[in-house]
Amino acid sequence: MIEWLLLLLPVAAASGWLAGKRSAETVNAGSHSQLNSAYFAGLNHLLNEQPDKAIDTLLNVLEVDSDTVEPYLALGNLFRQRGEVDRAIRVHQNIIERPYLSSSQRGQALLELGLDYMRAGMLDRAESSFLEALKRRSHIGITLRQLLDLYQQEKNWYQAIAMAQKLREESGEATESMIAHFYCELAEQRWVQRQAAETTWFIKQALASDWRCVRATLLQSRLAIEKGDYKRAIRCLRQVERQDPDYLPEILKPLSECYRHLEGQDEFFFWLTEASERHPGCTSLILAKAAYLQQRGKQKEARYFLIEQLRVYPSVEALQQLLALGVPEDIEAASEPWSLIEEVASRLLKAKLNYVCGFCGFGGKYRYWQCPGCKRWGTVKPLALGT
């Protein structure tokens, strides 16, 4: 009961004051009496714990005086925020039905009604409300963002691209990266359907929208690998370093495989050495270089290399790889401290996040191109660069 009083009394009071002010200005006794009657009837229903009847009665005031639109918009928003979406929809629908609203007021009500439908999960109705608000050029930026969010939920990537482009035109907001990811979504759909030509076309569109789109380049490399064109795949994978070096950990395994197919492991090691100089402390590069030495049977060199790197760039991953090389000759195999270090390193790695969003801090074990936390695209990156 107290919650309803706190929620509806301010709106009722505002409606009564505005109605009284309006009726005083027009000096219309009949109108004044009708407004006062509706106002007090609404309060009576409220006090008798009949909030739905109170809403209906107070909404009738709108038939007399459009100055009360703003309080009722606020009331609908309060209902939505409290999770009472049905009541929010009723309030906003009632407002829209009024013939005397200004274009701005009707556009605002349509936008709020669309938000109600979104909250209720009725995406088709939300889309209709947002599109109607967009036709009226009302609150363009907010409306376009809501439509953009809606089309992403529906995975309607063509419409999402159109809305993102329109948002850029209307507000100047940078949407190039987002559009590139939408094209990548379409490319991956065609990839699953084994439509290589269309996959390639969408990848090109993604890179045309944002040349730094690592996702598109990784897709290019996958296409090349599937065709057995390892030289092209290597060119694509090495391009990632220029696009965004944070994604270097993502390319090392496929890059190594491509060089192996071409019997160019020494060339791969040469690239690793150069890349390590360009990105000192990159844990993934350190691990890859040590693994190469180990594969070549150079266990001692690999151990010394890891020890040297750990002194400057400490990381749990490098420590575990050092431990995996085996117990040094001057330490007993059954040494309790050595076993403890191995166990601690293993536990720390299991608890460690592999990816983190640079915007909201969301972390996880797996890569997401769209952050599950903040819904931004391309912000979740590997957490494998040494600090």
Rank of each mutant, 00 (worst) to 15 (best):
D246A: 06
N60R: 14
K135R: 15
Q321Y: 02
Y158E: 15
R222M: 14
A333G: 13
C357L: 05
L18V: 09
T143V: 13
E84F: 00
G83F: 09
L207W: 06
A12T: 03
E274I: 06
E63M: 11
G228V: 12
W271H: 06
G326R: 04
I331Y: 02
R222H: 05
A302S: 13
L123E: 04
A290S: 02
G281T: 02
Q299T: 14
G114P: 03
L8F: 12
V344H: 05
P372W: 07
C357E: 09
H181M: 11
S23V: 13
K350L: 13
R303A: 04
L325P: 11
Q189E: 15
M1C: 12
Q239M: 05
Q193R: 11
C282W: 00
G297T: 08
L75S: 00
S346I: 03
L340A: 09
Q295S: 01
S129V: 03
G363H: 02
W369P: 01
I89R: 10
L111N: 02
S37F: 07
I251Q: 02
R296T: 10
R215Y: 08
V327T: 12
L319C: 14
W201R: 14
L113V: 09
V91A: 05
V327R: 00
S256T: 09
N77G: 11
A109H: 08
F359L: 13
E263K: 14
W377S: 01
Q265I: 13
W271C: 01
S171H: 07
G373M: 13
P10E: 14
Q50Y: 05
T199D: 02
D330G: 04
K289F: 02
L248T: 07
L62P: 01
G281I: 01
G364C: 00
S15T: 10
L35D: 03
Q34H: 15
Y368V: 01
Y151I: 09
R311N: 07
K365R: 14
H279S: 00
E176Q: 14
S339T: 12
A120I: 10
M118C: 07
A196V: 06
L349S: 01
R82F: 03
L219R: 02
R125M: 15
P382D: 11
C184I: 12
C282F: 04
A187P: 04
A288P: 06
G373T: 05
G228F: 03
P10T: 02
E112G: 01
S104F: 06
I251V: 12
I95A: 03
A24F: 14
Q153Y: 08
F202C: 07
G297P: 11
E132R: 05
T143L: 07
Q146W: 01
P10I: 10
L262G: 00
W211V: 06
R22A: 04
R136V: 04
S129H: 07
L62E: 03
S315G: 08
I331M: 07
P328T: 09
Y117R: 14
A275L: 05
L353T: 15
R376F: 00
Q159M: 12
G364T: 04
Q265A: 08
A206M: 13
E49V: 14
S103I: 13
S339A: 14
E332H: 06
L18R: 00
R311H: 09
S23L: 00
L248N: 01
C360I: 03
S104Y: 07
R215I: 08
E169L: 10
Q81L: 11
E308P: 02
Y117S: 06
F359Y: 13
R90Q: 13
E3T: 08
L287M: 07
R106V: 01
I251M: 13
Q108G: 00
L272K: 02
D210L: 08
T26C: 06
